[in-house]
Design a protein around this nucleic acid. Structure first.
Length: 508
RNA sequence: GCCGCGUUGGUCAAGGGGUUAAGACGCCUCCCUUUCACGGAGGAAUCACGGGUUCGAAUCCCGUACGUGGUACCA
């Protein structure tokens, strides 16, 4: 019988939730749902100096917006609570001590200065690694070199210490990565990482292993930046004698900067003009507000879709996927091996596709909010939906609806008369005066009636409709864009249409 | 420096011994549209380099180059 699939997303609450983070959540979520498993949110807040107030709630909000809600987490609880590592502090210490007892870890009393000196010496000796490892641990102040009573004395005295893993050299650590296949490391190149910090908090290395074990995690997906420390974690699983329960690993490719080199960072967003965070993030430390995908006008469906295919492809030509389709078709083995540069143009294309294919009723509330923020209150629901339907093909971001739809509700502030003037004459003026008169008499204000009268009137004035369409458009819209003119006139009603035509004619 | 992981058009990518080397974004041309879009039809543009293995290599092997990550009492 195979174990129930359990995966986790384990962010540290230090700031906004990055694109790459959401993608990690997504892949975890898809895998869990595909296998009828659990998706856990675990907050890795062991670094007190980097902790940021509000970041945890923010992460939960982002997941909610995306629709990737955890089955267990600090905000909802679960059988393996607590889900905040700071609240599990004592637990880690016990395991660290156990490792010391079994000889796989040791106390180290070295001060930062002593460690720095050690590195300087290594450098001077021409060593190419600056590690605290089996080469140097014999020369440092730790429980391997000290007599047991000396060690005990230092501890009793309250001397700050850390617990480090004791990595034995000349061992090949080999493991299967679900994405990359077999990966090997020589322990010669693995250092004695700190497991328990001087403040009693675990480092990531100890905490992941302990929590993944205790929370019965079966598959651990994380960013590729963790690959080099995988051997430490594997050693820990072995030393704690939990190897049989070790999760399967998968290291996800990185999302890179669109232009230069390196990982995508929030600074790239500022620099290149696109979001990297899921939602707006107001940094309490700097006071900066960093724009998110949500507020910039992305649909969660599109956001997830673009993230899903940034690093994964099912081998077909399909590019647009619903969440349900992703759950069905996603496979971790098909995730790519190498990082992908983020392309904002393509990201916007996904949003455009989703705007086009979703019924406007599914996002009209969001658009309404955007309008309200700009000071436009919508009272006529039916008209609002009709207008959105009319202009949706022209909108790439939800925020585009504002300029595309504004003139349906408010007469254009500026009318581009310059585009009419060059070909304007008395003939045309007479035509529009008569058009106003005839339109005013219409009983049934409908697209076809408007168009027919427009054409008949043009004929009696010996004018081609083509010469009159653009002026009419500019009169109603204010400029050269928007849906069909008669559709527009139909929606804005008789009185307003007549008023706008009259207004522009008076300007000419 | 050392260690790990990578490398198919500008970008995302399919393909994994024999293909005219898919498709998408972006760009360009045309059609549709009496506006702007949508839509439709086309176009330019690619297997990092060098050695092998093989009748045959984008595909397998080895080097090199380049990219990227790690090298913290950060995650």
């Amino acid at each position: 019988m195979s174990k129930k699939v359990r995966v986790r997303f384990a962010p540290s609450p230090t700031g906004g939730l990055h694109l790459g983070g959401v993608r990690t959540v997504l892949y975890n979520y898809l895998f869990a749902k595909q296998h009828g498993g659990d998706f856990i949110l675990r907050v890795e807040d062991t670094d007190r100096s980097r902790y940021v107030e509000g970041a945890e709630e923010y992460i939960v909000d982002c997941l909610k917006w995306c629709g990737l809600n955890p089955d267990e987490g600090p905000h909802i609880g679960g059988d393996y609570a607590p889900y905040r590592q700071s609240e599990r502090k004592n637990l880690y210490k016990e395991y660290a001590e156990e490792l010391v007892k079994s000889g796989h870890a040791y106390y180290a009393f070295d001060t930062p200065e002593e460690i720095e000196a050690m590195r300087e010496k290594q450098k001077a000796d021409g060593k190419h690694t600056l590690h605290y490892d089996h080469h140097v641990r014999e020369h440092m102040r730790n429980s391997i070199n000290l007599m047991p009573d000396e060690t005990q004395h230092l501890i009793n005295e309250g001397t700050p210490y850390v617990i480090r893993i004791k990595v034995e050299p000349n061992e090949i650590i080999c493991f299967e990565d679900m994405i990359r296949g077999s990966v090997e490391f020589d322990t010669e190149n693995v250092d004695d990482k700190v497991l328990l910090k001087a403040d009693g908090m675990p480092t990531y290395h100890l905490a992941v292993v302990v929590d993944d074990y205790l929370m019965k995690v079966t598959h651990a997906f994380r960013g590729e930046e963790w690959l080099p420390s995988a051997p430490v974690h594997i050693l820990l699983w072995k030393y704690l004698e939990w190897a049989d329960n070790m999760p399967k690993w998968a290291h996800l490719p990185l999302i890179l900067k669109p232009d230069g080199n390196g990982k995508l960072s929030k600074r790239d967003g500022d620099r290149l003009g696109f979001p990297v965070f899921a939602m707006n993030w107001a940094d309490p430390k700097t006071g900066d507000l960093i724009k998110g995908f949500k507020e910039l006008g992305f649909l969660p469906e599109a956001f997830l879709n673009l993230l899903a295919v940034l690093g994964w492809n099912d081998g077909t030509e399909q590019e647009i996927y619903t969440l349900d389709e992703l759950i069905e078709k996603f496979s971790i083995e098909k995730v790519h091996h190498s990082g992908a540069k983020f392309d904002y143009e393509k990201a916007k294309w996904f949003n455009h596709e989703w705007i086009k294919r979703l019924p406007v009723t599914s996002y009209q509330l969001q658009v309404r909010k955007i309008f309200e923020e700009k000071g436009l209150i919508i009272s006529d629901d039916e008209k609002f939906v009709k207008v959105l339907e009319l202009v949706k093909d022209r909108c790439t971001l939800l925020t585009d609806f504002y300029e595309q739809a504004l003139f349906f509700f408010v007469a254009p502030e500026k009318v581009n008369v310059e585009s009419i003037k060059p070909k304007w004459n008395d003939e045309k003026k007479d035509f529009f005066i008569e058009l106003i008169k005839k339109w005013s008499e219409i009983k049934d204000w409908q697209h076809n009636n408007l168009e027919n009268i427009f054409k008949e009137t043009a004929a009696t004035h010996h004018l081609k409709p083509g010469e009159l369409m653009l002026p009419l458009r500019i009169m109603l819209v204010g400029d050269k864009f928007g849906p069909g003119v008669f559709d527009i006139a139909t929606v804005i009603e008789k009185e307003e249409s007549v008023k706008r035509i009259l207004h522009t004619v008076s300007l000419l």
